[in-house]
């Protein structure tokens, strides 16, 4: 059942992300829904799932976007692991903790992507990188994070009810 849950979550988040991109004009910083979901899954203890989904969402974003193939895949899977480590030290139910994690994750991934681009991109002229875009994205992510966390809880509860037992994610 965990596989089905993973596949459905992956598809749903990807569709939502695509629709969000569809509505936001090109060139504007968009909300990074996969990142928020990785943080949610990591913070709730689903580290393996967060890593795996983060890896595939990242590769999908790389394939669909302009970043180097593997950059976001690497950072989202790493993010899943790191959030999993931190989840035991913070209260994941508090909105402040969620928001802090999301903004930290956005900056971490943004800087990481920029660093990887510097290191791995062989193009002579690199695409301009702006801290402002990362901060804007962080801001939008923070705005949406509580809502995504609530909807994700509802999504997980729905699956638990559907499966009829609590530990299906274990």
């Amino acid at each position: 059942m965990i596989w089905w849950f993973g596949l459905m979550t992956f598809t749903l988040v990807w569709v939502c992300q695509m629709l969000m991109v569809y509505f936001i004009p090109a060139g504007y910083p968009s909300i990074n829904l996969p990142l928020i979901m990785v943080v949610y899954l990591g913070i709730t203890g689903q580290v393996g799932l967060a890593q795996t989904l983060g890896f595939f969402w990242g590769l999908g974003s790389d394939a669909a976007g302009l970043s180097l193939f593997g950059t976001q895949g690497f950072f989202l899977s790493l993010l899943g692991y790191l959030v999993g480590l931190l989840s035991k030290k913070i209260d994941s139910e508090k909105t402040v903790s969620q928001v802090t994690m999301v903004i930290g994750a956005t900056i971490f991934c943004g800087l990481g992507c920029w660093f990887f681009q510097k290191v791995f991109d062989q193009a002579e002229v690199l695409r301009p990188w702006s801290l402002g875009v990362v901060l804007f994205q962080g801001f939008f992510n923070v705005l949406l994070a509580p809502l995504v966390f609530r909807m994700s809880s509802f999504w997980v509860k729905m699956w638990i009810q559907f499966c009829g037992r609590r530990g299906f994610l274990d």
Binding site: G48, G73, F74, S77, G84
Partner: peptide, 16 residues
Amino acid sequence: SVFLLFFYSLVCLFFL
């Protein structure tokens, strides 16, 4: 988790 981190990182670094 560690194994997945190691595996995914390796794959990504290979891609990069």
